[in-house]
Measured scan of single mutants.
Amino acid sequence: RSRTNFTLEQLNELERLFDETHYPDAFMREELSQRLGLSEARVQVWFQNRRAKCRK
């Protein structure tokens, strides 16, 4: 699998939701992934990586 390149719109939406909650539930992830045209797994990994970045 190659690296996912997020569009600016996708990143803005992901960051907006991250500001609301660092741990979106499965329903939120599924709804977001459909809206952004990403797989739920990519959304989940993005949040994992974003939380790690936040801890640094």
Rank of each mutant, 00 (worst) to 15 (best):
R1V: 11
R1N: 10
R1W: 01
S2L: 04
S2N: 11
S2H: 15
S2M: 09
S2K: 09
S2R: 11
S2W: 02
R3E: 15
R3G: 15
R3F: 15
R3T: 13
R3M: 13
R3I: 13
R3Y: 15
T4R: 06
T4D: 15
T4M: 13
T4C: 11
T4H: 10
T4L: 12
T4S: 12
T4G: 11
T4Y: 10
T4N: 15
N5I: 15
N5T: 07
N5A: 07
N5L: 10
N5E: 14
N5F: 06
N5C: 07
N5S: 11
F6K: 06
F6Q: 02
F6L: 11
F6R: 04
F6M: 09
T7E: 03
T7S: 10
T7N: 05
T7W: 03
T7H: 03
T7A: 03
L8S: 13
E9I: 03
E9L: 05
E9H: 09
E9W: 09
E9N: 05
E9M: 06
E9A: 11
Q10G: 02
Q10K: 06
Q10F: 01
Q10W: 02
Q10A: 08
Q10C: 02
L11H: 15
L11D: 08
L11M: 08
L11A: 07
L11S: 12
L11G: 05
L11N: 12
L11Y: 04
L11Q: 15
L11W: 05
L11F: 08
N12S: 12
N12D: 07
N12W: 07
N12H: 09
E13H: 11
E13L: 07
E13R: 03
E13V: 06
E13M: 07
L14W: 00
L14G: 02
L14T: 00
L14F: 04
L14M: 08
L14N: 02
L14Q: 06
E15Y: 15
E15H: 03
E15P: 01
E15T: 00
E15S: 05
E15R: 03
E15C: 03
R16V: 05
R16E: 08
R16H: 11
R16W: 07
R16F: 05
R16G: 08
R16T: 08
L17W: 05
L17C: 09
L17R: 06
L17A: 15
L17Q: 07
L17P: 02
F18N: 01
F18M: 05
F18D: 01
F18R: 01
F18G: 02
F18W: 11
F18Y: 08
F18C: 03
F18L: 00
D19C: 14
D19A: 13
D19M: 13
D19F: 07
D19H: 08
E20L: 12
E20I: 10
E20N: 15
E20T: 15
E20D: 10
E20F: 05
T21L: 03
T21A: 08
T21C: 12
T21I: 07
T21E: 13
T21V: 07
H22K: 11
H22I: 07
H22T: 11
H22F: 03
H22P: 13
H22M: 14
Y23K: 08
Y23T: 09
Y23S: 04
Y23M: 07
Y23D: 11
Y23P: 00
Y23R: 05
P24N: 01
P24Y: 01
P24F: 00
P24H: 01
D25V: 02
D25G: 05
D25R: 03
D25Q: 10
D25C: 13
D25L: 02
D25N: 10
D25M: 03
D25Y: 02
D25K: 06
A26Q: 08
A26P: 13
F27S: 15
F27K: 14
F27H: 12
F27C: 12
F27P: 15
F27W: 10
F27V: 14
M28P: 06
M28H: 13
M28Y: 04
M28I: 12
M28G: 04
M28T: 12
M28K: 11
M28R: 13
M28S: 11
R29A: 09
R29W: 06
R29G: 01
R29L: 15
R29I: 11
R29C: 11
R29D: 06
R29Q: 11
E30N: 11
E30Q: 13
E30W: 09
E30H: 14
E30L: 13
E31A: 08
E31R: 09
E31D: 08
E31V: 07
E31S: 11
E31L: 06
E31I: 03
E31H: 03
E31Q: 09
E31N: 14
L32Y: 05
L32V: 08
L32T: 04
L32S: 02
L32Q: 02
L32A: 08
L32F: 06
L32R: 01
S33P: 02
S33E: 04
S33W: 02
S33D: 04
S33R: 06
S33K: 08
Q34N: 14
Q34K: 14
Q34G: 12
Q34T: 14
Q34H: 07
Q34P: 01
R35I: 05
R35N: 09
L36M: 10
L36I: 09
L36E: 01
L36S: 07
L36N: 02
L36F: 13
G37C: 09
G37M: 09
G37T: 03
G37N: 13
S39A: 10
S39P: 07
S39Q: 13
S39L: 04
S39T: 13
S39N: 06
S39F: 01
S39H: 06
S39V: 05
S39W: 03
S39G: 07
E40A: 11
E40I: 09
E40T: 05
E40S: 10
E40M: 07
E40Y: 02
E40D: 12
E40G: 13
A41W: 10
A41E: 08
A41F: 04
R42E: 15
R42F: 09
R42L: 14
R42D: 15
V43S: 01
V43Q: 01
V43N: 01
V43A: 00
V43T: 02
Q44S: 13
Q44D: 11
Q44G: 12
Q44Y: 00
Q44H: 13
Q44A: 10
V45T: 12
V45A: 14
V45N: 12
V45H: 08
V45Q: 08
W46F: 03
W46N: 02
W46V: 00
W46H: 06
W46K: 00
W46G: 01
F47C: 02
F47S: 01
F47A: 00
F47L: 06
F47T: 02
F47E: 02
F47Y: 05
F47P: 00
F47W: 05
Q48F: 06
Q48M: 08
Q48W: 04
Q48N: 12
Q48V: 13
Q48I: 01
Q48A: 12
Q48Y: 05
N49R: 05
N49G: 10
N49D: 15
N49Y: 05
R50L: 01
R50T: 12
R50G: 01
R50E: 10
R50F: 01
R50K: 07
R51M: 09
R51L: 08
R51K: 06
R51C: 05
A52L: 10
A52S: 09
A52P: 02
A52M: 12
A52T: 10
A52N: 13
A52D: 15
K53M: 11
K53H: 05
K53A: 14
K53F: 11
K53T: 15
K53W: 09
C54P: 11
C54N: 14
C54F: 12
C54V: 04
R55N: 02
R55K: 13
R55T: 08
R55L: 09
R55E: 15
K56I: 03
K56T: 10
K56L: 03
K56R: 07
K56W: 06
K56H: 10
